[in-house]
Amino acid sequence: MVKQPEESSGFLLWHVTLRWQRAVTTTLKPLGLTHVQFVLLASTWWLNQHDEQPSQAAVSAFAGIDVKMASQVIRTLESKGLITRQIDSADSRARRLLVTKAGAALAPKAVEAVEAVDAALFEPLSGAEAKAFTKSLRRLRAQQTEEQS
């Protein structure tokens, strides 16, 4: 058991995450996106850029967002003219997502803005520390993915 909150990785992660979320929210506001909208738009854009037309479920899994929440937010992105949902020719229950011209123009701007937030947050870490931290996060994410399987 830790003696001080500052010795708790979870407590520290909580505080850093809150700071990061506030900065991302502030950065995305002028672009007209919430954080979740950004994640789903950027994920769909990235997958489309790599010749994929993902289903809503695939984008949800890729982004790590609950399927029901993703569905609601994707509808919002569709109403904003940033994404289209097309019926899958192989499965009429599934919807394939495509970023519109407006979405394709906005997504890279939003990604660049969020990457700037990330760079500012991690700037105090040396290059080696930042790489080690990212590697550790990948390991933790992989463990979470394995546990969910």
Score class of each variant (00 low, 15 high):
140 L>G: 10
55 S>W: 02
90 A>S: 13
23 A>H: 00
83 I>W: 01
112 E>A: 15
51 D>N: 15
112 E>I: 00
4 Q>L: 15
17 T>V: 02
112 E>M: 02
140 L>I: 08
92 S>F: 05
88 D>T: 03
67 V>Q: 12
8 S>A: 06
46 W>H: 12
81 G>K: 00
79 S>Y: 06
144 Q>W: 08
84 T>I: 04
56 Q>S: 04
148 Q>G: 03
49 Q>G: 11
8 S>N: 15
67 V>S: 13
20 W>R: 04
138 R>D: 09
132 A>H: 04
124 P>S: 07
45 W>P: 13
14 W>L: 02
70 A>C: 02
21 Q>N: 07
78 E>W: 04
105 A>V: 02
95 R>D: 00
37 Q>N: 08
129 E>Q: 06
39 V>R: 14
130 A>I: 05
123 E>G: 08
73 V>G: 07
71 S>I: 00
108 P>Y: 05
36 V>S: 07
144 Q>C: 00
148 Q>T: 15
60 S>D: 02
61 A>S: 05
82 L>V: 15
74 I>F: 07
90 A>T: 13
50 H>D: 12
47 L>P: 14
144 Q>I: 08
62 F>R: 13
54 P>T: 01
90 A>Y: 12
76 T>N: 13
148 Q>D: 14
143 Q>W: 15
96 R>G: 03
3 K>L: 10
41 L>M: 06
117 V>E: 04
118 D>Q: 09
136 S>C: 02
129 E>G: 09
12 L>G: 14
